[in-house]
Every structure is written in structure tokens, then in C-alpha cells.
């Protein structure tokens, strides 16, 4: 019998990080993934759905008039995002202007053009080229386009007389008739 036989193998304790470090790291990872997920989800969903009220924003046109969205109720508002470098915007520019010319005298409709990431010189040249007379202004700091989370240009948001979103058009309008029919459907009868 061997007295006090020591074992040849030594039980090695695994090196573990303190519990609070593991918990904190996991919480940080989950939080980081949640922020990324929320951001991606936000980007992929439209900012406004049909029926939503017009958000608060201010637009100063190239000619210096200021339009506050909260003061536009009572009119059908056609909010069109465009850019002079955008080829498809040019496709609908003449149609928008034609419908504006027809509907402006009634006083129940307001077209607002928002020039997105455009230089003033190019934007004014574009307006001149298509004879655009409805108010248009630069989206300073891209604040309005960020508010609407636009995915590109052209994009058009049409509000009814109560100031609620009634129609959204992503991409250019096919024809004047398309624009006219949407607006006429929102105007009070008579």
C-alpha cells in the first residue's frame, strides 16, 4: 500500500471571465444588433401610410415664399420630389405643369415641388426648361426628404383637403390623366 499516493493528473480549472463581463458583453451585442435591425426596418418601411396627417415642415421656394405644412389644410396638396439630374422627373414635369395650369385658378389645389440634392442653378434651369410655375424650393439639408424617407426621385405625395395622405406615387406619373383623376377624386363636389 502506497502511503499518500498523489495523482499524476491535475484537474485544470477553466479560465472563465467574470460573470458580469459576459452579461455586459452579451447585452451590448444584443443592443447593437437591435439598433441595426431597427434602423434597417425603418429604412425599408415607408414613413407615412395612407390616412396619415401631413407632417410638420417648412419649404422656402426659389422665389422666396415660405410654405408651412400646417397651414395647407383646406386644399389638395401635391407634394412632388424632383431633381434636375433625374431623367424620369423630366418625363412627368410637363404633365404636372399642365395639370397645375388647369387647376390653379380654382384655388383648391396647391402643387409644391421639392428639389432634392440639386444645385440652385440647375434647378432653376430645369424649371425654366419645363415652364414650371408652381412653387418649388430646395430641400435644405434634405430635411423633408428624410422626413418622408424617400427612396429616390420622382416621388409624389397627395394630401386631401383635411390634410391626410390620400395617394402616393413612387416614380413618374404615366400621364396627365393619372394626376388629374387622383386630384379630382379628392376635391369637394360641386
Amino acid at each position: 500500500m502506497m502511503p499518500d499516493e498523489p495523482t499524476l493528473t491535475k484537474k485544470v480549472e477553466p479560465n472563465r471571465l467574470p460573470g458580469w463581463v459576459i452579461v455586459l458583453s452579451l447585452a451590448a451585442l444584443v443592443g447593437f444588433l437591435a439598433i441595426i435591425g431597427s434602423s434597417l426596418n425603418k429604412k425599408s418601411t415607408p414613413a407615412f401610410k395612407i390616412g396619415d396627417p401631413i407632417p410638420e415642415f417648412t419649404l422656402t421656394s426659389f422665389s422666396g415664399e415660405t410654405y408651412n405644412s400646417s397651414e395647407l389644410q383646406g386644399k389638395v396638396v401635391v407634394l412632388n420630389f424632383w431633381a434636375s439630374w433625374c431623367v424620369t422627373c423630366a418625363d412627368e414635369a410637363a404633365a404636372l405643369q399642365k395639370v397645375w395650369t388647369e387647376m390653379q385658378p380654382g384655388g383648391n389645389v396647391l402643387f409644391l415641388g421639392i428639389a432634392w440634392t440639386d444645385t440652385e442653378v440647375d434647378a432653376l434651369a430645369y424649371m425654366d426648361r419645363f415652364g414650371i410655375t408652381y412653387p418649388s424650393g430646395p430641400d435644405l439639408g434634405t430635411k423633408v426628404s428624410q422626413l418622408y424617407r424617400i427612396s429616390g426621385v420622382p416621388e409624389t405625395y397627395i394630401y386631401d383637403t383635411a390634410g391626410n395622405l390620400a395617394a402616393v406615387k413612387i416614380g413618374p406619373f404615366e400621364s396627365e390623366t393619372e394626376i388629374r383623376s387622383i386630384i379630382e377624386g379628392l376635391l369637394p363636389e360641386g
Binding site: K10, V12, E13, N15, L17, P18, V21, L24, S25, A28
Partner: peptide, 21 residues
């Protein structure tokens, strides 16, 4: 800061365990 603190703790632990073994 967290990574540095974690690294420091791990190094300290290894240093403490190695001589005994």
C-alpha cells in the same frame, strides 16, 4: 475600455494561475 478591462482581467488571471501549475 471594456475590451481593455477584459484583456487586463484575463492576463491577470493567467499570470496568477501559471506559477501554481
Amino acid at each position: 475600455v471594456l475590451l481593455l478591462a477584459g484583456g487586463f482581467l484575463i492576463v491577470r488571471k493567467y499570470k496568477a494561475v501559471k506559477p501554481a501549475a
